[in-house]
């Protein structure tokens, strides 16, 4: 049964089909949150909140777009909100925690380990603007097509294309310098 059929059943009072929707999308929503927020614990909380929101909004969901488009839109908006407040908080947070984290991530005995690279990638992603970051996450990590991203973000396919290109150039630049810094230090 496809998503739209499940949604239709839900709207006709068969609330238990919501379980199936959660199971289908929980990993995708969680990872979208993780990339956009940059913190695992907050991503898990956010994913849970998103599904609660979806449950209450599903009754009024008008299937102009596909369910997944609608879900990703809610997820991205919620995660970006969390990321925004996280940024505000981290600005007033002391730097000691950050330094400890970076020191922790460093392993003098090897070149960049997988884990450490992932950490640098996450840091780099956080330096992108919201729309560029969202496009990279949805495309590169969630594997969505330009068209799907355009629908989710309510922009044209050519905007997705050009923003993604700029985002990639910026990411490459940030990562090049952070990795050089990392390896040489």
């Amino acid at each position: 049964m496809d998503d739209e059929q499940l949604v239709e059943q839900f709207r006709h009072g068969q609330l238990h089909v919501f379980d199936e929707l959660v199971l289908r999308y929980q990993d995708r929503v969680l990872n979208t949150c993780f990339r956009l927020i940059g913190n695992e614990e907050e991503a898990r909380d956010a994913a849970q909140d998103i599904f609660i929101k979806v449950y209450h909004a599903l009754a009024s969901f008008k299937p102009q777009a596909s369910f997944s488009t609608w879900l990703y839109r809610i997820a991205a908006n919620h995660a970006l909100n969390v990321a925004r407040s996280r940024k505000r908080r981290s600005r007033i947070r002391s730097f000691t925690a950050e330094i400890a984290l970076i020191a922790d991530a460093k392993n003098p005995h090897s070149a960049l380990e997988k884990e450490e690279r992932a950490h640098l990638v996450r840091e780099a992603l956080n330096q992108l603007g919201e729309s560029q970051k969202t496009i990279v996450v949805l495309h590169r990590f969630e594997g969505l097509s330009y068209k799907e991203i355009a629908d989710i973000m309510n922009i044209s396919v050519s905007s997705v294309e050009s923003r993604l290109f700029r985002a990639r150039q910026k990411l490459a630049k940030i990562l090049k310098s952070s990795m050089t810094e990392y390896i040489s230090s």
Binding site: D19, Q26, L30, A43, R44, A47
Partner: peptide, 20 residues
């Protein structure tokens, strides 16, 4: 290549229970 390190999280077994 750098983005290839796809550290993907998995929802834990109790996610659905907690949501409900």
């Amino acid at each position: 290549d750098l983005l290839q390190d796809d550290l993907r999280l998995q929802a834990d077994a109790f996610t659905l229970t907690r949501i409900k």
